[in-house]
Design a protein around this nucleic acid. Structure first.
Lengths: 346, 346
DNA sequence: CAAATTTGTGCAAACGTTTGTATATCCTAT
DNA sequence: ATAGGATATACAAACGTTTGCACAAATTTG
């Protein structure tokens, strides 16, 4: 409302607008005296720079763009997202950047929003969360030569700046933990098939099985997108077969919760009858009943490093590696049972 | 990078920049012919308006500001937040607004960020999430006469535009449900004491007790901020007393999870030994073991309506009521036991 | 002590739009 | 034919900054 500009300050301080500007940016060749005078004037007038004007002339917005994946509806109810966001905000905040967010209901809207942010010069760089396979947004940004980093990885462009877990290794570890605990019949619940991350985790699972020469049984891998809605029919189908799995690797903790709930409802005990290892280690994994064994992928760091990486690039710092990998670790709690080989109660 | 401006379009189309501008904004007095010519030129050049310039001259940013409460660290790991955000984004997106976010580590930073957004004219309005009692940010915004709405309510300024639940009634309902189920010794776990919402829920709990002439026992109300860190000492202290509560109202589902976990760890069964009713109905409340009885406060709607309310105000629509109340409802699941009055097993 | 350099400040252009006012062309009505 | 009003477009100022250049004053140098 008051809208006091640099000119008002200049007038009161008895100097030119450019001098005021230089005082603000600590230009070296401003005398101590005028600087003081100007600061005084700013103070009494309650001056604050108009960021929009500043952005226009400086051609830098100090803002990072973030468009929510169209799968937002699902992914978003997931604590994963807020934890990632928390990391991003923490980093952005520290480096004096803001985050401009928008959501989109479908791929078309998503592209439009990206376009508006990028071509509309509202942001200095973009963050892409969990890209799809053959993601057109990546193609677009690449074509525009606009700075961006993906949280996850691009299948088609391996050298695009990215922050990711080694999801193959992570799923391998999760699966191998079950193997080490004596399990031989291990099922897998995968994430949305269009996401790169889903493919990686599936691959890690398969790798672990084949390493110990266990057969891959297609009927034991379940696509999670049919899970929460359809009452887990796929799960009960698998469980009703004569030689059912004794354990599952589930590529998302939330889905794992839903699955456990179904299993419990069907009369199974966790981990006595079925073991489960989840993915992500969200806060509630620790608080659930039973506390869930899961692979901690460092969600907060994932977010933090993604923002960090992008800002580094924007500031022209030497970026040693295009890709940064956030370490994961298996957190062993109580949703996995040790299965003696001589035990054939299952 | 290419940075094609309105002038480039004008040149190619053989008209003046102002004409191009008017074509874009569908000015009535532009001939069909030129309009076509200009659109053609925009197309071939791949023109997109520079939003920053537009914002500068139009003095409207089409952006909503959101500063994360300093309690972000805690609140944020909470799915509550992402669900609220999802609602806000959905509404903003629909009304063609963006969200500018920032976080702050302490009240001072918070104020600075608000100042930067508001006085820096980066946003048209602000959203304040769950204000504290005597929140200085509210005072500031009021003093500046800057449009904002709070998600929650202001204690000191009841007529400030706000979107909220009737938290007193909600906590009353939760407590009364326990009473109806036969409970007479009911504890309460409160949220961070500096938040308005915490006070309201506590009041609702007290109201329910006094309505049925149950004594208020101070030692049975536990402040949650001492909960997750200190291993729930307060809980075990309460539980070890000779006449311990048979049930708790817990003003946040996440805290309820943590509490249940502690209780289970101490050998109690839920709901057989202790009943719990939570607050918020986050996604995982349904999936937990046992599924949690909780009051659904419509988190998504809370977010959606907050954005909606602010946008209404910004667009100068007649706003019938300064405050909108999002309805709540008790969702009965399986964390509460029916307690026969003749049953003195507890 | 004059010349050269440094120091401090102002002027004006630029960033890419929007919009009020002026002007030119074209109708329509007298 | 011609005034009067539409209609369609151009001009230029404005939004609030930053910054290259010019220039005066102060300081250093030989």
């Amino acid at each position: 409302m008051p809208s006091v500009t640099i000119k008002d300050v200049a007038r009161l301080a008895g100097v030119s607008p450019s001098t005021v500007s230089r005082v603000i940016s600590n230009h070296p060749r401003i005398s101590k005296a005028t600087a003081e005078k100007v600061r005084q004037a700013m103070e009494t007038l309650g001056y604050h720079p108009n960021m929009t004007a500043k952005k226009l002339v400086s051609k830098s917005t100090k803002t990072l763009g973030l468009v929510l994946p169209r799968s937002a509806e699902e992914l978003f109810a997931n604590p994963f997202f807020s934890e990632v966001l928390r990391g991003m905000l923490a980093c952005a905040n520290q480096k004096q950047y803001d985050l401009l967010m928008s959501s989109a209901n479908n791929p078309k809207e998503e592209m439009e929003t990206v376009t508006r942010m990028v071509l509309g010069r509202q942001v200095d760089g973009m963050i892409l969360i969990k890209p799809r396979k053959a993601d057109p947004v990546i193609e677009k940004l690449l074509a525009l030569d606009f700075p961006f980093v993906v949280l996850g990885r691009s299948l088609e462009h391996p050298d695009v700046p990215a922050v990711n877990n080694d999801n193959i290794a992570a799923a391998f570890d999760a699966t191998f933990h079950l193997i080490n605990q004596g399990h031989r019949r291990i099922g897998f619940v995968s994430g949305p098939p269009e996401l790169v991350v889903s493919g990686d985790r599936l691959a890690g699972y398969q790798k672990a099985l084949s390493q110990v020469k266990l057969p891959l049984r297609d009927e034991w891998v379940i696509a999670s997108d049919i899970l929460p809605k359809n009452g887990f029919h796929a799960v009960s189908m698998v469980m009703n077969a004569p030689d059912r799995p004794t354990a599952f690797v589930v590529s998302d903790d939330v889905v794992a919760f839903g699955m456990i709930r179904e299993l419990v409802g069907a009369g199974y005990q966790i981990p006595e009858d079925v073991s489960v290892v989840g993915f992500n280690n969200i806060v509630l994994s620790e608080l659930s009943n039973p506390p869930m064994t899961t692979v901690d992928i460092g969600i907060y760091h994932l977010g933090y490093q993604t923002a960090r990486h992008l800002i580094r690039i924007l500031q022209g710092e030497k970026v040693p590696e295009p890709n940064v990998t956030v370490p994961h670790r298996l957190v062993i709690r109580q949703s996995v049972r040790f299965l003696s080989h001589t035990d054939d109660s299952l």
